[in-house]
């Protein structure tokens, strides 16, 4: 149970996370990262490569317990996750991949598959899919389990721009209908602004929290000037770090 009450969807308080380097020395990857998300809040996690975004997501997912600090989730909770790579079972079809992850209701599964354009590929094996399609399956899998905590690690990286834009629209629709507490890692500011209620910026080595911005809602009312202002703000935050 979260110490801050039951409207909290996720609370993170990491004092330090270190990895063991190749020669046995300890290298910090995260330091003093603390924030809380309300239930159903969509938060984008922004930051340059190596700033500990994936590390943070793994800790929240419970895959890494070797850190100083704590993570509180409402219990019970259902976790949905999109890894940086699709991580599908190559020996099972798309439909089986979705079902085995815990997608139980055939109706909602069919709906999600339709939204993501997978209806024709349900009987295919992952090896027969393009990277873009495999990514969609991974996204479908995360939503199909009806998560109340959704973690997405750069779900559109290394896809061409047009496809990324379309998938982002599809993701936005899913996020809005499913109302899960969501943490989405990206280094695309536009993506963060278009999807999130809030933007958290990690930077430095070890990565620490350098900004926590609210995005005004309704999103559609946000002018491009406001978006440009947020971008400028983020650029200003990143600049002094880049100089060092």
């Amino acid at each position: 149970m979260s110490p801050a009450g039951d409207r909290v969807g996720l609370e993170v308080a990491i004092a330090k996370k270190a990895y063991l380097g190749a020669s046995g020395e300890s290298r910090a990857a995260l330091r003093d990262v603390a924030f809380a998300l309300k239930r159903g809040e969509v938060c984008a996690l922004l930051g340059p490569s190596g700033s500990g975004k994936t590390t943070l997501l793994r800790i929240v997912a419970g895959l890494d317990r070797d850190f100083e600090g704590g993570v509180w989730l409402p219990s019970p909770h259902r976790l949905g996750m999109v890894f940086q790579e699709p991580r599908l079972l190559p020996w099972r079809t798309v439909a089986e991949n979705l079902r085995l992850a815990g997608a139980s209701e055939p109706k909602s599964l069919a709906e999600i598959a339709a939204v993501l354009g997978l209806a024709l590929h349900l009987d295919h094996f992952p090896g027969e899919l393009s990277l873009g399609l495999a990514r969609r399956v991974a996204i479908a899998r995360a939503f199909a389990v009806k998560p109340d905590l959704l973690l997405l690690d750069e779900p559109f990286v290394s896809l061409d721009a047009a496809l990324a834009l379309r998938l982002r629209g599809e993701l936005q629709a899913l996020v809005e209908t499913h109302k899960a507490t969501t943490l989405i890692v990206t280094h695309d500011v536009e993506e963060a602004i278009s999807l999130a209620d809030r933007i958290i910026v990690l930077a430095g080595a070890p990565g620490s929290l350098i900004a926590d911005l609210a995005i005004e809602t309704p999103r559609l009312a946000m002018t491009s000037r406001q978006a440009a202002a947020i971008k400028a703000e983020l650029a200003a935050l990143a600049a002094p770090r880049a100089d060092r």
Binding site: A61, L63, M81, E85, A101, G102, R141
Partner: peptide, 12 residues
């Protein structure tokens, strides 16, 4: 190991 993590995350 990455598939094992996936299985854990989805609580298979």
């Amino acid at each position: 190991a990455s598939l094992d993590e996936m299985a854990r995350v989805f609580a298979m």
